[in-house]
Amino acid sequence: MQTIDLRGVSCPTNFVKAKLALEEIEVGETAQILLDDGEPVKNVPRSLKAEGHKLIGLKQTDEGHYVLELEKAEE
């Protein structure tokens, strides 16, 4: 599974970087997106859902950041 590390990247750059990274993977594949707490974890999952991707889950790590798992949708 591909990991897209968006820690330390603020809105809306993180969302645009996620879009660019998702262009590189196949439809139906899953990816892990690492997001900071606060605005990023509040905004990015919602925006990716609105783009049509299938959100699978969200887990907080011991270090404090979040891991969003999603399945890439059709373009």
């Binding site: 509040k42 999952p45 959100l55 969200l58 887990k59 979040y66």
Partner: peptide, 12 residues
Amino acid sequence: CISCGLCAKSCV
């Protein structure tokens, strides 16, 4: 519900 936890995290 798939227990993904996104709603709780989004709920300010």
